[in-house]
Amino acid sequence: MKNDNNKNNRKSTTDKSVKLTGVNFVPVIVIVVFLLVWQAACTLHWVPGYMLPSPIQVIQAFIGDFPLLMSHAKVTLIEALLGLFCGVLLGFVCAVFMDSFPLVKKGLYPILVISQTIPPVAIAPLLILWFSYGIAPKVILVVLVSFFPMAVGLLDGLQSVDEDMIKLMKSMKATKSQIFRYAKFPAALTEFFSGVRMAVAYSVVGAVISEWLGGFSGLGVYMTRVKKSMAYDKMFAVIFFVSVISLLLMALVSVIQRKVMPWSKVR
């Protein structure tokens, strides 16, 4: 009987995934319709051309400036990934400490939450004031924005482990580090990866924002330059480029997650 139940469950999950891939076409259609309307609005002059470039103009701008965009993207990516790495590492250490020592959690957690109400745009000028126009203020801002989703996500994951599981392992004389390695950390992996995915998105945005406020290269610098020269087609091109970079990085995290967590496919 139980076996039958299981089979039914599996069947229903595959049904669901079929449905899901069906659903995924809907946003694609919406985007295509949106682009068509946008193109029509430009070619039929519903909106003055200097205010809104058409999608085709945006693509032309992207292709025209492709080498320049790539060289700026390289700088932004280095800042984002360096900051992301440090932020994830710091968030990880912080989460483990908060999980192991309740007092640390009590003291640190509310401060972490409150700190998130400070917009990164507000800190960026300060960082530039303190650390000048080089790569340092950008990386630090990325660390600050990517650290929080990591720390909070991982902490929730670590504390989601069944109390009874810990009880059972204690009755088997497991040490604290064994409980962490066998039960807590694997249970937190889902949250860990959601945290990383969120941190990835924040990190690219964070790097771009800090570049706006001062710097010599990077996509944020490119953005401020094209804005000043009123090149809106290039402006749109770089905006889309930034979001594509974020999406690709997030997809990469999902691919790694599937590789690292083979059991999650079972469900």
């Binding site: 599981m165 009880k167 039960a183 249970a187 967590m261």
Partner: peptide
Amino acid sequence: YMLQKDLLLPHKTVIENAALPLLL
């Protein structure tokens, strides 16, 4: 000690779960 819930670790294969006390 065996509890009411099976408390198998979802990320370990069945054999690794069974061998948990030995691994610990």
